Simulated assay, not measured.
Amino acid sequence: MPDVIAADGSIRNDSWVVVERPAEGESLNVAAGQPALIPADLWLAGYEHYVGRDDIGVWFDSHDEPEMLGEKVKELPLIAVNFPRFVDGRGYSIARLLRERFGYQGELRAIGDVLLDQLQFMKRCGFDSYVLRADKDISKAARCLNFFSQAYQAATDTDQPLFRRRAS
């Protein structure tokens, strides 16, 4: 299992398994006894079966809309957002929507093509855990999470831009 990086830079073993979307005509295969992240739309389709379980979370692909789950996001212990390619920034928007519009307070994880230079920006959008791409050096993660001492823009980590914070 890959390691997961927390927003404070600590590294821990990841017990969650990302369950891939089944092929056309196949059913979702979730292993018993292991925490699993399943596609968000399939969680919603089987809501009665999954609701209230702390061992089932969801993952959003970059083209998914968090609106599909609405207020039900608050029932999930973990939500992951897939970054299929480095240049695909839709996951940042998904994170901000989950935190700001839907009030999600649980663990929000970035998965997929996650690189070190993205970590601080992901953190500012509301992510609090990260699974790096396999070829990246996880030991550098803590430094990358706090590379900049100040941010100009408002985000999930501060509701005022820098010029307003300085004026106070």
Rank of each mutant, 00 (worst) to 15 (best):
R165M: 04
E65A: 06
G57E: 08
K74A: 15
E26Y: 05
G57S: 12
V58W: 07
P161G: 12
Y92H: 11
A95E: 11
Q153A: 08
P39I: 01
N82F: 03
I79Y: 01
D135S: 14
V18K: 11
V30K: 09
L69K: 04
S149D: 03
A23T: 06
R143M: 14
Q150A: 09
E71F: 14
T156D: 02
A154P: 01
S15N: 12
R85Y: 00
Q153F: 05
D41M: 15
A23H: 02
I11R: 15
E107V: 15
R101H: 02
A31W: 01
I79E: 00
K72A: 14
S139F: 14
D113V: 08
F102G: 03
C144P: 11
R165Y: 01
T158I: 05
F127R: 10
G9P: 13
R166P: 02
F147W: 00
G33M: 13
G57C: 13
R109N: 14
L108G: 03
R109V: 13
F121N: 04
D137R: 13
F163Q: 11
K136Y: 12
K72V: 07
P77D: 06
S27F: 00
R133C: 06
A110S: 08
G112F: 10
E67Q: 12
P22E: 02
I111P: 02
D159F: 03
T156A: 08
P84D: 11
D135T: 14
R96S: 03
E20V: 00
H63V: 14
Q153R: 07
D157Y: 00
V30L: 09
C125K: 03
Q105T: 15
P39E: 05
P2D: 09
G57K: 10
L162I: 03
G91C: 01
K72P: 13
A95K: 11
A141D: 13
A134C: 03
L115W: 05
D55L: 13
R101G: 00
V19N: 09
S93M: 02
T156G: 07
L116G: 04
D113Q: 06
V58L: 03
P39T: 00
P39R: 00
A31G: 00
W43G: 06
A95Y: 11
S93N: 03
R53M: 11
D14Y: 11
R21K: 10
R12L: 13
T158M: 07
Q160V: 04
R99S: 04
G9H: 10
N146I: 07
N13G: 14
A167P: 09
R101I: 06
A7Q: 09
D3P: 13
R133D: 07
A134T: 04
H49K: 15
A134D: 05
E75N: 12
R85P: 02
W59T: 01
V19Y: 07
F147E: 07
E75Q: 14
D54C: 11
Y152P: 03
W43L: 06
S129H: 10
D61T: 01
E100N: 04
Y104N: 02
L97M: 05
L97K: 04
R164I: 01
A6K: 15
G106I: 13
Y152K: 00
A6M: 15
N82Q: 06
D117K: 00
A167F: 09
G89H: 06
F147R: 08
W59A: 10
L44R: 10
E48Y: 09
